[in-house]
């Protein structure tokens, strides 16, 4: 019932966690390999995988900045939170995909893990 670790593209991720994709013109060929769930951005910066996804409940421009510095390809906002228009603009400029899901952080992370996206330390 658990999938082997594998890469996943943005449309499939959005489908699994029933997420709305908030940014326009994203690259559908981006492959996500690993993920990190956190509300504290310095904890995110202690994470070092490439082709990563960030799941968070935090809404502010520093989330996009952190994603930029970390080469994070996509950010998922959980618990029904929506990114601000200014954050969407900033992310589009930097080529970062933003998604929003109603699932809580734990459930959204669990669904993606179960389908093959893993994290650090495995």
């Amino acid at each position: 019932m658990y999938s082997e670790r594998r890469n996943m593209k943005i449309p499939e991720i959005a489908e699994i966690i029933k997420a709305e994709i908030c940014t326009k013109n994203y690259d559908p060929t981006i492959e996500i390999y690993s993920a990190c769930s956190a509300d504290l951005m310095s904890d995110v910066m202690a994470f070092s995988k490439s082709n990563a996804l960030l799941l968070t409940g935090l809404i502010n421009p520093q989330v996009i900045r952190t994603a930029e510095m970390m080469d994070i390809k996509a950010v998922i906002f959980a618990r029904g939170k929506k990114p601000l228009e200014s954050m969407i603009e900033m992310a589009e400029e930097k080529g970062i995909v933003l998604m929003a899901t109603d699932y809580p952080l734990f459930v959204a992370s669990g669904k993606l893990y179960k389908n093959g996206i893993h994290g650090r330390g495995e």
Binding site: L40, S42, D43, A46, T56, L58, Q62, T66
Partner: peptide
């Protein structure tokens, strides 16, 4: 500051690393 997503106590160690 923690509500803004910082103040985890990882800043200086992240800089050092």
């Amino acid at each position: 500051i923690r509500e803004m997503g910082f103040g985890a106590g990882m800043g200086l160690s992240n800089i050092k690393k």
